[in-house]
Amino acid sequence: MNIQTHIEETVMPVPSASPTPIIEVRDTQVFYGEKQAIIDVNVEIEPNAVTAFIGPSGCGKSTLLRCLNRMNDVIPICRVEGSITLAGQDIYAPEVDVVALRQKVGMVFQKPNPFPKSIFENVAYGPKINGLTKHKLEMEEIVETSLKRAGLWEEVKDRLDQPGTGLSGGQQQRLCIARAIAVQPKVILMDEPCSALDPIATATVETLIDELREKYTIIIVTHSMQQAARVSQKTAFFHLGELVEFGTTEQIFSAPRQERTQNYITGRIG
């Protein structure tokens, strides 16, 4: 396949029956130095839904995800072009406060990365630095609700003062989700949140994601087709830096319009 055909096949505007998108990615290119990792991507993320990014390794899923809360800023050679808006505001505009943006768009990483501090401090850190509260009681409340929402409260309520790094992998990942929830974000980005977890922990986290959808918009990168099918309402398929196809999960998995999508979900590329 040559590049020309790629581009012709690529853009598939989604029929706009859906509610006003919370995040809009328009004509976005991302470069690492000379190398282009994202080519002309357009995506609209629906609020209070789970959107899955799928695609073979190295196709730019993580790159695009990290653009959405400007985590790429810390990579000096990374350059973003085009426009990405959150609730109508361009997040790359000069007047934007990255810190405030990241508070609105939280992130959960592939490898659980709790701070080597107590469980309580892990959850309380975000609210503390963002000045959500100064009172001890309020803070305890925030920690409790966040842990409850992350489905971890029952397991850790008696040992909040113990290190978060002492939990099991699945618990650590839920702790990281609780930590992200605690700053009251609008959007939660998850980069392969279950790839380091066993099937049981994965199932717990997946249930959790489904519940979280009510209050938050979730974008999840995953390598597992089943996971995408189970948890997401929308799916975007990327290949070699391009968005090949974007639609409802049902449609992508049952009736892909693009040959490459078809090949990928049936396991022929990747």
């Binding site: 810390v74 810190v99 405030a100 992130m107 990483f109 490898k111 850190y125 630095i129 930590r179 700053v183």
Partner: peptide, 15 residues
């Protein structure tokens, strides 16, 4: 210090 710690803090809106 593992970069994941820095990412975690940045992701929470730490400067």
């Amino acid at each position: 210090v593992p970069p994941s710690i820095r990412e975690a803090a940045f992701g929470l809106g730490a400067s």
